[in-house]
Design a binder for these strands. Structure first.
Lengths: 237, 237
DNA sequence: AGGAATCGGATTGTTCAACAATCCGAGCAA
DNA sequence: TTGCTCGGATTGTTGAACAATCCGATTCCT
């Protein structure tokens, strides 16, 4: 834990933009990279001296990150790296299930978007061939971000980015992280193919199935839902 | 301007929650209420002494509000109440057009939601009968928030709240504010009626038309689009 | 006179040091 | 063991200080 903290303090001499925003960026990166484990406490004193900034400035960064729900602030207790649970996963997929298919189905399709999608798919297939799980995960996230990008809305793109950041936290929070992504590379390819063919409604429907399956897989792995029986909507919470 | 600032400084003795969040709440209310005009500058010194908080604490509130894009922060210049323009209106409706119909069409319809919708419609009709434009506007926003609420997602509800806050800013930014809302009361009623009847797809389609019309009306009033010809996309900014 | 460079005041950005408020755990008592 | 109190540690908030930057007005040159 300590190693991760003081690791990048060397670049501490050049707070490019506003120092607060810079600190927020540094912490955001480390959290997304998993260097700061979900649930771990971020001490004001340690972090401020490790990053070479004032406690006040660090606090500003905390405010930013709390607004993005990357960290959780508990009054008089401190800030902790967000640790999403099963209910958070359900919420994540509630959002994705609403936004992604809608963007696919009724997006305005800016020029070059299709090529962008296909480039990402190619990258994912490359990563799969090379067996690089990390690159596959990255490409996967990039693809879904691009799908939302079809809507042409910067707001929704930002929201999706936030959601994907939370997804990374979910993965980091899982003790054992099996290969969730390789299954989906081919599905992604098929999806983009359908979009290319103009079969937007079918693509959206397939995407919905995709998301349902992914959510279920995650919940099962979190032990929040039984593995097999898929009938009545049973255990909630 | 000054009157609005020091107006509520009387309650300044009881910062209930964390002072930063409290200040952010106060400012948010005043901005939404139009007491702080869009584009106006929020001076750190004046505001901090008017609210009876430290400059540092006020700054934390600014960070929060900037994260919600209620204010715009310009480095070394200060923070200003957000002043949405035509492009922002287009972005707002890009989001609404994607989210609201999707929520109507595929929302999970929690119990009591329908009654809630109808209660809001009733309130709106009441307000229309009484000629209270303000209550109509409130009911209108409440209805659309409730529509998104059908999705069951707190994240999307928050996003919609942010969007609606920006809408209020748009109205406040308009010099002349004619009656945008009375047209839509009956449309809202019809919409809820269709939802009640289970005709979700039709309701979503009607909602889309609704949103297109509202956006166009706003853009026309902002002078960002010609009044009649509905063909080529013309003047940008 | 018109325009460019300059200067001074004002505001923001950041840090530091201090104090109050709160929480957590250790130690003690019943 | 259970419950209480106390002390240390951390957070919340403030005030003051200084550097950096920006804006407007004055001044100077052509």
């Amino acid at each position: 834990m300590n190693a991760a903290l003081q690791a990048t303090a060397d670049s501490g001499q050049a707070p490019h933009a506003h120092t607060g925003a810079w600190v927020a960026g540094v912490l955001r990166s480390r959290i997304s990279a998993g260097q700061l484990a979900p649930g771990s406490k971020l001490s004001e004193q340690k972090l401020s001296e490790a990053l070479g900034v004032s406690r006040n400035t660090l606090r500003e960064a905390f405010t930013v990150l709390a607004g993005e729900s990357m960290v959780q602030r508990i009054p008089n207790r401190g800030v902790f790296v967000a640790a999403p649970g099963a209910e958070d996963v359900r919420e994540i997929y509630r959002v994705r299930r609403l936004i992604e298919p809608a963007a696919v189905q009724s997006g305005e399709m800016p020029p070059g978007a299709l090529e962008h999608l296909e480039a990402i798919v190619a990258k994912a297939q490359e990563a799969k061939a090379a067996g690089s799980v990390l690159d596959m995960a990255d490409a996967n996230q990039e693809l879904h971000k691009a799908l939302v990008g079809l809507s042409g809305s910067a707001t929704l793109a930002r929201l999706m980015e936030k959601v994907l950041a939370e997804m990374r936290l979910v993965f980091h929070a899982m003790s054992t992280a099996p290969d969730f992504h390789s299954h989906y590379v081919d599905l992604n390819a098929a999806l983009v193919e359908q979009i290319r063919a103009g079969r937007r409604a079918e693509a959206a429907a397939e995407l919905r199935r995709y998301l349902d399956a992914a959510e279920r897989e995650l919940l099962v792995h979190l032990g929040a839902v039984p593995a097999e029986p898929a009938t009545k909507g049973g255990a909630d919470r």
